[in-house]
Simulated scan of single mutants.
Amino acid sequence: MPESEQRPILAATQKWLQTIVIGLNFCPFAQREFDKSTIHYALVDSRKTEDVLTALQAEWQRLDQQPDIATTLLILPYGFEGFWDYLELVDLAEQLLVMEGYEGIYQVASFHPDYCFADADEQDPANFTNRSPYPMLHILREAQLSQALDHHPDPEAIPQTNIDKARAMGYQQLEALRAACLS
């Protein structure tokens, strides 16, 4: 993918991190890594599931070799716009994580423009805690995540706090924030 195509995708992703993930404190641990520039952004310029899984394996290997990278966002701007197709990819990614022996080392979190929690209405503002400008797989180091959670005063409250905050803001406001990340 030419750099001219990569730039707006990366800019939208970084703006989303700053505006929504960090700005709304949906992840109380993201600010530190963003400020330290320890987030690696990888774009997959393919619509094929096999290519995404190959890229995922490459990112696990990168994290193995580069301990200064805290986390990776594997951004999928093409081919996984449909949420159900994307969920199938997430399932395959989690299976591959186990097959490759990375269970307990890395964790895969999921973000998608149409993210919808099971049993939630599509218009539920709580879905915005996992809505992003592009489909992406977020690779986290489990040890680092565990350490961060150990130092948080109430880690169990994070999801409900985020849901309450999102619902208080409302769908329209959150959609406008997310849409602004793409402009």
Rank of each mutant, 00 (worst) to 15 (best):
A42K: 01
L96A: 15
L92Q: 15
Q65V: 03
E81K: 01
E94S: 04
D64H: 12
V52I: 13
L56Y: 05
L53R: 10
D68M: 14
L74W: 03
L53K: 11
F83N: 08
Q65C: 07
L87Q: 10
V44I: 05
D64T: 13
I39E: 08
L43I: 05
T71Q: 11
L92M: 13
F80P: 07
E94P: 12
K48W: 05
E88R: 06
Q65H: 14
E59R: 01
Y78A: 15
L56C: 13
L56Q: 12
T49M: 12
Y102L: 10
Q61Y: 07
T72S: 13
Q57T: 14
E88D: 09
H40F: 01
I75H: 06
L89Y: 09
L92N: 14
A70T: 12
L76A: 12
E94A: 00
K48C: 11
L43V: 03
V90L: 09
L56K: 09
E59Y: 01
A93Y: 15
L96R: 10
E59P: 00
E88H: 06
Q66V: 07
D64Y: 06
L97Q: 11
I69W: 06
F83M: 02
L89G: 15
Q66E: 15
E88Y: 04
L63K: 08
D45F: 00
L63Y: 11
I75D: 14
D64V: 04
E88F: 03
V98T: 13
D68R: 15
T49L: 08
I39K: 00
A42R: 02
Q61C: 12
L76N: 08
D64I: 13
E88Q: 05
G79H: 05
G101Y: 00
V52C: 14
